[in-house]
Amino acid sequence: MRPLLTGLSVILLLLLNTLALIGPLLLIALGKFVLPGRAAKAACSRGVMWVAETWAELNKLIFAALLPTVWDIRGGAELRRDTSYLVISNHQSWVDIPALVQALNRKTPYFKFFLKQQLIWVPFLGLAFWALDYPFMKRHSKAKLARRPELAGQDLEITKRACEKFKDLPVTVVNYLEGTRFTPTKQAEQGSPYRYLLKPKAGGVAFVLAALGEQLDAVLDVTLVYPGQRIPGFWDLISGQLPRVIVDIRTRPLEPALWQGDYQNDPAFRRLLQGWVSRLWDDKDARIAVLRGEQRQSGD
């Protein structure tokens, strides 16, 4: 009964927090349409980010007041709010996003995800994504490109234009290289060579780097580890059944060579980026083994 009451209480408070702040967020975002001048539009973007960060900070307070979860955040002491980052993280659960909020909110610029263009039509969420300047990707399938080769590169140019607004403000972009949440079943189906990870997809990060590479200053290599043998769900978190989350942050340089190439048409550049991704994933798999070993020794 206690987990149920805790979960329902957290859901209610999260909903009230969202309803209280969604109106101001959308109202300020409207200013980007009606106010003239680049400076005024940039001020509105900063206002929207402030509301979003306040919403996230209040969610953190709700979690701290009602939940026993210990957020074991390691690294990141040098994070800056005036620096643009590419966050690369393993992906296991819906809890991953609250974990990133705990570690990064008001320590880096408010983070953004590249979204499929269709998501802009989702009721309420689409408006919030638009207000937060989330970039919407219009990517064509290989089959469509085979039928209409003139579309090649069009999706990247559209995304680059969507990211023009980030030239006025620092940004944190989150990219999950695995492309989906980890499960043992998916791992087996892939024949993944990694112990704790799915195979990474270099194409997604290549797209992000091609669109935003010049504006990004560093990579935040984030490793998320949960205690126990079972990957927790969001209900486990909000019902108070998740004792501990490890968020390990390592800052890595972003070499210009990683975004100054054509991933689709240059085999040498494609091998370069794939090699970088493979080394990153080798290190991450080894890091997860170390962190999980610490848990076993401590009895978590």
Rank of each mutant, 00 (worst) to 15 (best):
I22N: 05
S9R: 13
D155H: 01
K112M: 00
A131Y: 09
P24Q: 13
E178R: 03
D262E: 11
N265S: 14
G293D: 13
L212E: 03
L237P: 04
K142Y: 06
A29F: 00
L291K: 10
V171D: 02
A128P: 01
V277N: 10
Q92F: 00
A152E: 15
L58E: 06
S298R: 15
Q117F: 05
I288S: 13
L272G: 06
D168F: 05
V87T: 11
V101D: 09
W55H: 12
P170A: 03
L198I: 08
A128W: 12
K112G: 00
Q118N: 09
C163A: 02
V122E: 06
V225M: 00
R74L: 14
F114Y: 11
L273H: 07
R270S: 11
Y110L: 14
Y263N: 06
V245W: 07
A268D: 13
L280W: 05
F136W: 08
Q274T: 10
V174W: 00
R81I: 09
V173A: 03
L16Q: 04
L280F: 12
F114V: 14
E255C: 04
V48L: 08
Q297L: 15
F63Q: 03
L273P: 07
S89Q: 01
L280K: 08
E214L: 06
L25T: 15
V290K: 11
V34Q: 07
N175S: 14
F166Y: 15
D300Q: 12
K107E: 14
L19D: 04
L258T: 03
R279C: 09
P253E: 14
L237I: 07
N175K: 00
R38F: 03
D266R: 07
K138N: 12
A77L: 03
P184H: 07
I28L: 14
G240F: 05
V222L: 05
I231P: 01
V87F: 04
S84M: 10
L16F: 12
K60I: 09
W235V: 13
L86F: 12
